[in-house]
Design a protein around this nucleic acid. Sequence first.
DNA 1: AACCTGACTCGCC
DNA 2: AGGCGAGCCAGGT
Length: 111
Amino acid sequence: MKTFERIYEAVKLIPEGSVATYGQVAEAAGSKRLSRVVGYALHANPLPGIIPCHRVVKKDGEISSAFAFGGANRQAELLQAEGVAFRDGTHVDMERHCVTFLPLIQEEKGI
DNA sequence: AACCTGACTCGCC
DNA sequence: AGGCGAGCCAGGT
C-alpha cells in the first residue's frame, strides 16, 4: 500500500453530499502534512469516475482554483447536485458538509 | 541519480 | 494581517 493508494481510499470514503479538506484526507492517509501530496494525487487521478475529487476542498472550503477535471465551476456544479450548500460561488458550507469522521487507512488491510 | 515542481497547510516574522 | 519558508511524496526533466 503506497501513500497514493491510501489517499485514494480516503477520498473514496467521503460520503455523498459531503466534502473533506485536503488536510482531512491527508490525515486519514497517515499525516496531515501529506496535504500537498493529496493535491498531487488527485491531480494524477488515475481512476476518474471512481475518485470523487470534487468532494475535496481547501481548509476554508474553497474549491481549488487550479484547473480541475472539467473546470472549477464544474466542480461546484457537481457538489450542488449532491446537495452541498455553498456560501458563495467558490466556498462550500463547511459547517454542514465537512466530514467529521474520516477513518485512518490501514496499510496491512490491503483495502 | 539529483533537482524542481505541484489541486496544501502551518508556523514565524 | 499578509508574506515567506519548511515539510510531506511522486513524477518528470
